[in-house]
Computed example of a mutant assay.
Amino acid sequence: MTRLIRQSGRLPALIASILLLVIIVVVAASVPEDRIPARRWGLLLEAAGAYGIVVFLSVGTLATSIGLPRQLVAFIGGLAYGLLPGLALSLMAALSGCHLTVQVSRRLLRHRVERRYPAFIERLSRLLRHDTFVKVLILRLQPLGTNLLTNLCIGFTDVSYRKFLLASGIGYIPQMLVFVLLGAGVRVGEETQGLISGLLVLISVFLGVGLYLQHKQRQKKAILDSSD
């Protein structure tokens, strides 16, 4: 695996991304509960019942649609609602935000961008035309991905929207689960949640790298087959 990663030419960036995200997780897990402002938000949402859920979904959707971290939404979801409900609600908010951004991009920005940068749109469409699911999944699994930019670019293309949303939902889960665990850990006071979160970070990153390398190998094979 290490040899293949080096061959991809992305080892330094990958190491930096892993270290940064692990540091964030460790720091978040070690901060005292009374020093976390988000904890108060979580407690207020939990106390508000059904109204709090509506507020959480609405604010989470708007926040992720403009590029604010879905990890923060997941953390607050874990604080307010615990592990599984927090994951489900934060994932719903993140996907709704993703949908909102794509629709705004497709309906309000696409024609302007197509007129001004036709060559760019053509290259982008050609890039995403094949293996859409795998390519989007790889982007979503990376620890420091450009979520807003990805959503905007998808709105400029005619790629399968179903594949895009499915890949986004699956790719969101590992990292969002990390921060839901951190939030739920603060909520119930379980220190082992930090260790589980760090392990999930590594699994998420290496899964993304593995998919990327498999995709590159398929591309090379296709080029060789077409040249025969």
Rank of each mutant, 00 (worst) to 15 (best):
I138W: 02
E191H: 14
L152W: 10
Y172R: 06
R162K: 06
L137R: 01
L181G: 11
R187A: 13
Q175P: 01
L181N: 03
Q193T: 15
A184W: 04
L144P: 00
L141D: 05
M176Y: 12
R140F: 00
R129F: 03
T157D: 00
T146H: 13
V186Q: 10
G155D: 00
G185F: 04
V178W: 01
G169V: 07
G171N: 04
G169M: 08
S160W: 12
G169P: 00
T146N: 14
Y161P: 03
L141C: 12
F156P: 12
L166M: 10
E190L: 15
V186K: 07
R187M: 09
V180D: 06
H130L: 13
G169R: 12
L177H: 07
P174R: 05
Y172H: 03
V136F: 04
V159Y: 05
Y161R: 15
H130I: 04
D158F: 13
C153L: 14
V178M: 03
V159Q: 01
S168H: 01
V159D: 00
F164M: 11
L137V: 10
H130Q: 07
L141F: 03
L141A: 09
R162L: 14
F133G: 02
V178A: 09
L137A: 10
V186F: 08
E191Y: 14
R187T: 15
V180G: 03
G155R: 01
D131W: 00
I173V: 15
G171I: 02
K135Q: 09
L144I: 15
L148D: 07
L139D: 09
V180E: 05
G145C: 09
I138R: 10
L128E: 02
L144C: 06
Q142M: 11
L128M: 13
Q175R: 03
L181P: 03
G155N: 02
I170T: 04
R187D: 03
R129K: 11
V188F: 01
L127A: 08
A184I: 06
F133P: 00
I154T: 12
D158M: 09
I173A: 10
L152Q: 14
V188D: 08
L182V: 11
M176F: 07
P143Q: 07
M176H: 12
L144K: 00
G183M: 11
G183C: 06
F164P: 00
C153F: 07
K135Y: 08
G171C: 00
G194Y: 01
E191Q: 11
T192C: 12
I173H: 04
G171E: 03
L177D: 06
L148F: 15
Q175V: 12
L141V: 10
D158K: 06
E191T: 14
G194C: 02
E191I: 13
R140Y: 00
T146F: 11
Q175C: 06
